[in-house]
Amino acid sequence: MSDTITLTIDGVEIQGKPGQTIMEAADAAGIYIPRLCAMDGLVPHGSCRVCTVMVNGRPQSACTQPIAPGIVVDNETDEINAIRRDIVDMLFVEGNHFCMFCEKSGNCELQAVAYRLGIAAPRFPFQFPDCGIDASHPDIFIDRDRCILCGRCVRASQDLDGKDVFGFVGRGSEKRIAVNSDAKLKDTNIDVTDKAVEACPVGALLKKRVGFAVPIGQRKYDHKPIGSDIEQNKGSL
């Protein structure tokens, strides 16, 4: 049939549809590829690089790379896991991730990917940056020390909320998330119900006064690794 494409991921032959990315095809086949900047409903960003896979031996980001007939994709190999661990470690040391008092802990995707990769502690030295907090808004705050620059809020605000509240400023290690105003978050037209607020995978963009609502033990990633929902699809196709 011409409307399916056959490819191999970690030795398993799967079927995808033309136009799909490797990540989409893998998701549908119940194979989880770790990710942080990718989110259902948003255009792929390709920035966190956690979804790096080998396509016919060459590294590519699974969230942006389209499938092609006969490609051989490696997802779970020692080499790739080492690269992913390095990337996740970098994200941890590049910011200040004090999980013990972070409202997102237990539901945080960065933490969850680290758990899934079995990281006990990052292998790189902590940088202890000072990127600033914006708590001006009555209902929402930004903690830039926790921001992983995935751009999910930027895209969600643009594409889902139709607002353009967020953007990036600076470059290199000085790159920061910024709001669409000279001053502060409070001066933007963001609303606490915006999709952008939900889109943050970490504790960088949070609603005020709703932290720690779920007790430890009942949070999203307390018992099941991130990606378990995708892996449940396995064999169901």
């Binding site: 200040n96 004090f98 013990m100 502690a121 902590f126 202890f128 940056p129």
Partner: peptide
């Protein structure tokens, strides 16, 4: 063995680090 976040990354006391 580093036991706990403070031994690993400085923990809450490290809030003073910058």
């Amino acid at each position: 063995i580093s036991v706990g976040d403070c031994a690993i990354d400085g923990g809450i006391p490290a809030l003073r680090n910058n």
